[in-house]
Each structure stands twice: as structure tokens, then as C-alpha cells.
Nucleic acid binder design. Structure first.
Length: 198
DNA sequence: AAACGGATTGGCT
DNA sequence: GCCAATCCGTTTC
């Protein structure tokens, strides 16, 4: 049920970004367990990707997490306000990752509603990378956590989407990435209410 | 040492 | 639709 470490060692971040649609993302905090169905992702393919923090092999205090073994959480602060959750993929020292952009609330709805101060049927509760992370209680303390551990993990409950149910587009908010700005590396569930900009 | 800008969101016009 | 919020890695002086 819980995805094993071997799942995350796949060096194909694009494949994993697609494959993660429909998987269930869980978090456990002092307040309880919450979970959401992953419905929107983006792939960042590492040192050759101009949109990646690890472009050119950059290693800093922040990006060091991305060089961890696949199955590690890379959480960073964006615009000084929002925590964004990435799943590191591939083997150690190959800094590829998948950004979780949107989930559909599935478990612990009351806790998610408290964190976001809005009802779970309001799609803004977990739509967009900052909102998805906040609804699941993810902050910088989750950085470097492993997905096979006690605080964060992903389960496969056999939800799958066909190619025609899956949308593909360029990644959001990376215009600075020049020739990599238009690559089709964003994947989403077309009929999900919790995906914006379809 | 200082300035710049971003894998975004929500509130106000 | 526009714009402020607000931190920190990176760039520039």
C-alpha cells in the first residue's frame, strides 16, 4: 500500500510526475493525519533544467536536499511566504524532483479546513502548490523527511487515469527558464475541480 | 554589504 | 485584474 523506497529511485522524473497522479499523499502531525489525491504535478529534470534550482549542478544549503536519494521531501520557501513540496526522485546526487501542485482532500478534512480557514469543498483549499502544502500541514520542518517514514508518505489505492483524462502543459511560473519554459512537463487530471488553469 | 527577484496567493479595486 | 506580503539564495558593488 505505502509506496516503497524503490519507487522513488526511478531516474525518469517525467514518468513519475505522470504516475503520481491518483496516488494518495499522507502527512501526520501532532494534530492528526491528513491526505489528498494528487491531481497536479510538475517534473524538474535536474542539472540540465534551466527551471530547476539545481541547474548547472548548483549546490547550496537550500538545494542540497535535492541531491539526496529519491524519496526525500524537498520543501522550500517561495516568495518568503509559501512552502512548496517536491518529491526528490532518482538516485543520490542526481537532483531531480516532482513538484506537488494540487491535491483533492481525502482524509482529515476538518484539520485541512482549520489550516486553510475555508471549507473543503472550496477548491482553493488545496489547489496550487502553496495551498496544497499548507492544507497538508507541510512546512520547512518536513524538508529532508523521507516518504517511507512516519510523517509523510504516499499510498497507491489503484486510482488511475487514462491518457485522455490526463492534461499536459508547460510548467507554471518559470518564464525565466528560456528554452525550457515551454517543455510539456506539467501533468494534471482534466476533470478535477481542484486543478486551476486547465 | 546591499540589492534583486522568485516553481504564489489572497485581498482589494 | 493588480499588487502587496515577506524570506532567503544569488548576484552585484
Amino acid at each position: 500500500m505505502k509506496l516503497p523506497l524503490s519507487y522513488y529511485l526511478n531516474p525518469d522524473a517525467e514518468f513519475l510526475a505522470r504516475d503520481l497522479l491518483g496516488k494518495i499523499l499522507f502527512t501526520r502531525t501532532d494534530y492528526g493525519i491528513t491526505a489528498g489525491i494528487i491531481v497536479e504535478t510538475e517534473a524538474y529534470f535536474g542539472t540540465g533544467d534551466k527551471a530547476s534550482h539545481a541547474y548547472g549542478g548548483r549546490r547550496t544549503g537550500r538545494t542540497e536536499t535535492m541531491y539526496s536519494e529519491g524519496g526525500t521531501a524537498y520543501v522550500y520557501l517561495c516568495y518568503g511566504i509559501h512552502h512548496l513540496l517536491n518529491i526528490v526522485t532518482s538516485v543520490k546526487d542526481d537532483p531531480k524532483c516532482v513538484l506537488i501542485r494540487s491535491v483533492e482532500p481525502l482524509e482529515g478534512l476538518e484539520l485541512m479546513e482549520m489550516r486553510r480557514k475555508m471549507p473543503a469543498d472550496c477548491t482553493a483549499i488545496s489547489s496550487g502548490p502553496g495551498s496544497a502544502a499548507k492544507s497538508l500541514g507541510i512546512d520547512s520542518s518536513f524538508n529532508m523527511d523521507v516518504f517511507t517514514g512516519e510523517r509523510i508518505w504516499i499510498e497507491d489505492r489503484a486510482i488511475t487515469y487514462t491518457a485522455s483524462q490526463t492534461g499536459v502543459s508547460s510548467r507554471i511560473g518559470i518564464a525565466y527558464a528560456q528554452e525550457h519554459a515551454d517543455l510539456p512537463l506539467r501533468f494534471f487530471v482534466k476533470d478535477s475541480r481542484y486543478v486551476k488553469n486547465k
